[in-house]
């Protein structure tokens, strides 16, 4: 009975402490960012090792283990097939990596932006925050609020950086916002994440001209993203009856579910 009373009182105490912490971090978001930088110091070596080993096991599984059963039928043939598949998979990987790097190079040449090429080594596992961890940090000149792009398309912004890794908040996170405009009609608004794979564009006035298929680009007004980077395409436009603003759904151009290589812009006009 005494033990139960102790447990109940400690649960109540720690639960209220959690609520106080939550309220404090809502008012002071920088506290959460400071904490994640400390966490990354400890976790990034582990995360890198886990990423490397999971990639290794994944490639071993894909290129070898699945073929063990079939090898009994025709050992020699399957061995050759396995080698060929591994080679094709390797070349495909190299080709995709080269394509991503080519796009980054094009962007640098066209715009003069300077930045750091990074590899994605992790993602937020809780499922409630849309963010990824990349393998470069403050030692490479990466800092908070630097834009992350894939090709010429916006992916998100850095919200925390440790010496050798950084966390990038994706466009689709519900706390993300990007000042944007419709490329064709120049209508302005803000693209907000809503926790799903799509975004919504808010604050576009009812009388503005927006149709499905329009391209949404950054306006540069938020001081974070340079002007003219592609955000996505309009997939749905709805007029709110009696409202001041349109309801616009935007599908991000960058495939945010399969991110591998990102370009973090460190210098741009």
């Amino acid at each position: 009975m005494v033990r139960q009373t102790r447990i109940i009182s400690s649960v109540v105490l720690f639960f209220f402490l959690s609520l106080i912490l939550t309220a404090y971090s809502v008012r002071n978001p920088e506290v959460g960012k400071l904490g994640v930088a400390v966490y990354q110091l400890f976790s990034s070596p582990v995360q890198g090792a886990v990423h490397n080993s999971s990639t290794f096991f994944s490639s071993v599984w894909d290129s070898y283990v699945w073929l063990v059963g079939a090898r009994i039928e025709n050992r020699t043939l399957k061995r050759e097939l396995s080698l060929m598949k591994s080679e094709v998979a390797r070349l495909r990987e190299l080709s995709q990596e080269a394509e991503a790097l080519r796009k980054i190079l094009e962007l640098r040449e066209q715009t003069g932006y300077k930045g750091v090429v990074t590899s994605v080594i992790g993602a937020d596992p809780s499922g409630w925050v849309r963010s990824v961890t990349v393998d470069r940090g403050s030692e490479d000149g990466i800092g908070q609020q630097m834009p992350a792009v894939l090709g010429g398309a916006v992916v998100g912004q850095v919200f925390s950086s440790a010496p050798d890794s950084s966390q990038v908040l994706l466009l689709t996170d519900r706390t993300s916002g990007v000042a944007a405009l419709v490329q064709r009609s120049r209508a302005r608004g803000i693209v907000l994440g809503n926790g799903s794979d799509d975004c919504i564009m808010e604050y576009v006035r009812e009388e503005e001209d927006v149709v499905v298929g329009d391209t949404i680009v950054t306006s540069g007004f938020d001081g974070i993203y340079p002007k003219g980077l592609e955000i996505g395409l309009v997939t749905k436009v709805k007029d709110r009856k009696g409202g001041m603003f349109k309801e616009i759904q935007v599908r991000p151009t960058a495939d945010l579910t399969h991110l591998e290589t990102l370009f973090i812009l460190t210098e741009y006009e």
């Binding site: 447990i7 400690s10 649960v11 105490l13 720690f14 639960f15 402490l17 959690s18 609520l19 106080i20 912490l21 939550t22 309220a23 404090y24 971090s25 809502v26 506290v31 959460g32 960012k33 904490g35 994640v36 400390v38 966490y39 976790s43 937020d124 809780s126 409630w128 925050v129 963010s131 919200f159 925390s160 966390q167 908040l169 706390t175």
Partner: peptide, 25 residues
């Protein structure tokens, strides 16, 4: 044990870089 549960939740909160406290609670 309550303290340990709070600590585990706090680490999950810290890792997300957002609010501190919801997972701890």
């Amino acid at each position: 044990g309550t303290f340990l549960a709070f600590l585990c939740g706090l680490i999950v909160d810290i890792s997300s870089g957002q609010l501190l406290g919801p997972w701890a609670g």
